Amino acid sequence: PDDLEKRARELLKRGKNPDEIREYLRNAGYDQSQAEEALKRAL
């Protein structure tokens, strides 16, 4: 898994919901489609 996916998994483990994770990834400078893909793979 790429770093983005790892980060998404990490956040899920900490109890973040998908919307929070999307926002976090966007704020971290990733584009929307990258964030969506990583989140899908992590779920």
Rank of each mutant, 00 (worst) to 15 (best):
E23F: 03
E20I: 03
Y24E: 13
I21R: 00
K6D: 10
L43M: 12
D2H: 11
L39Y: 02
Y24L: 15
G29H: 02
R41Q: 07
L12Y: 05
A28D: 06
L25W: 04
A38I: 13
L11I: 01
L25Y: 04
E36C: 07
Y30P: 01
E37A: 12
D19M: 08
R26T: 12
A8T: 12
R22H: 06
G29T: 01
I21S: 00
E10P: 00
Q32C: 09
Y30T: 03
I21C: 00
R22D: 02
N27I: 11
R14Y: 10
A35M: 09
S33D: 14
A28C: 11
A28V: 07
D3K: 07
P1F: 14
E10C: 08
D31W: 03
G29E: 01
D19Y: 05
R41Y: 04
E5W: 15
L39G: 00
R22L: 15
K16G: 06
R41A: 10
D3N: 09
S33C: 09
N17K: 12
K40G: 09
L4R: 03
Y30D: 01
K40A: 12
L43T: 06
Y30W: 08
L39H: 00
E20C: 05
A35S: 08
D31H: 07
E10S: 04
G29Q: 02
R26S: 10
L12E: 02
S33P: 08
K6N: 11
D19W: 06
K6H: 10
K6I: 10
A8G: 01
R26K: 13
D31Y: 03
D3F: 13
P1E: 12
P1G: 12
A8R: 01
A28H: 11
A28S: 09
K13A: 14
Q34D: 11
N27T: 08
L39T: 04
L39D: 00
L39I: 14
A38V: 10
A38S: 04
R9I: 11
E23W: 04
R9Y: 06
I21E: 00
L43P: 01
I21W: 01
R14V: 13
D3L: 08
Y24R: 04
P18E: 09
D19F: 06
R7V: 15
E23G: 03
K6F: 11
K40Y: 09
L25I: 04
R22F: 13
N17Q: 09
P18N: 06
E10V: 04
L11M: 14
L4F: 05
Y24T: 10
D31E: 11
K40V: 10
L43S: 06
